[in-house]
Simulated scan of single mutants.
Amino acid sequence: MKCKILLVLFLMCIALFNSGCIGEGLTADQIAEKMEEKQANIEDTSTTVHMIVTMDDEVRETEIKMIQKNPGMSKSVVFMPEEMAGQTTVSNGETMWIYDPATDQVTVMPLPETPDDFEMDYAAAIGSILNESDVSLLGTEEFDGRDTFVLIVVPKEDDSSFGSDMKVWVDEETWTPLKIEMEIEDEYNMVVEYRDFEVNTGISDDEFEFEIPDGAEVIEIDDFEDLFPVDMGLDEIKQASEFEVLVPSYVPEGYGLDSASYSQTSIVSGVKESVTLFYSNEDEMILVSETFYDGEKDSNSLSMMEGETVSVNGEEAELYTMYGGTMMLQWETEDAIMSISGSLDADEMIQIAESME
């Protein structure tokens, strides 16, 4: 979700300021052309991304140092939260390295080739954004030593690409967001700051080569496409998996198994396999997910959300209410983290979980 929000804001800010005023009537094609002209002058960027997310009175702070260079080179190092400090992702445009110091594990994979004729449809993207948003200029302000425009971005519809009002500080020099504030119904607040933002400092290509630490475990992925789950029949998945795949014997009336996917490759530390079962009726879908670990399991993915502790077959489980009324039930087995999500009530969620065998 965060990447989508930042892309939307990036395109919108470029569109607004290249046109000077939305009301002047520049077409999306003209705006996109001006946008590409401006971005063509940027060879490299560096910044420290600082993000604070507050949800249900829980506060989570993240800080990541990021550098990028054309064509397609990038590096990010996590500083906060403490339990993720040192996690590093490096790409030289052809190979990506992902290092987790907590497990002393490096994942190495080739990156897919980008076709020469691949082009983003800026005109369509910008036109869509402008059509679903009201953007107003509050004024100018200095942020972190750079002159910025301050915008208010308001979605016209509840189902727009980003779903809430935002305040955005946009760099006058590069027309990229340097600060974003977003709040949803006093329950969710996010502030993202791009500190020490610099462009065209002559970053060396050497920054985008990763030296594997002595003694680190190396996991090599031969093909980037191996990371994507494969649709398989349930019997095929059970035969392929080295773990016991559980299947619910109960689902609500009207639901049936629509499809299933299987993956035995992951960049997440410790994950050996994952299975997802998709159940559907005419209008809704239920997702049953099983993530199998080799060693310690990571159950912190929903740590920013306040859950209700319930019982599944006498064991503790967490029940979360997601946006839009969707529920998610999560619990652990000996080898896996299990989850069920869908537009169901708590009793039905628990009944499905307790029927898994």
Rank of each mutant, 00 (worst) to 15 (best):
S128W: 10
L151S: 01
S133V: 05
P177F: 03
A317R: 04
D205G: 11
L287G: 04
G256E: 12
D231I: 15
I340Y: 10
P101I: 02
D258F: 09
S301C: 02
S343V: 04
E142M: 09
E296N: 04
L234I: 09
F210R: 11
K65T: 11
Y250W: 12
R146G: 00
E58I: 11
D134N: 13
V251L: 02
E334M: 02
E36G: 04
D134W: 04
A15P: 06
D231N: 11
D335G: 08
I184D: 06
D231K: 13
V8C: 10
E157N: 10
I180R: 03
M305Y: 12
G23N: 00
Q105F: 07
L9R: 01
G314W: 14
D144P: 01
E236T: 01
L277F: 10
G324T: 08
L287H: 03
T174W: 01
N313P: 01
S249G: 07
K2Y: 03
I337T: 08
T326G: 01
S299C: 06
N189P: 00
G86D: 15
S160A: 15
Q105A: 09
T291Q: 11
F210N: 11
D116Y: 04
M84D: 12
S136R: 08
N313Y: 00
I52L: 12
E94M: 03
M12H: 01
D214V: 07
S133Q: 15
G233A: 03
D298A: 04
N300V: 08
F118H: 10
F278I: 14
E132V: 10
D235A: 12
E217Q: 14
G139E: 06
M80L: 11
E315A: 12
E141W: 04
I212N: 03
E37V: 13
F162H: 12
T88D: 05
V288A: 00
M190I: 15
G295Y: 07
I14H: 15
F162R: 05
F143P: 03
Y194W: 06
A260Q: 14
G86Y: 08
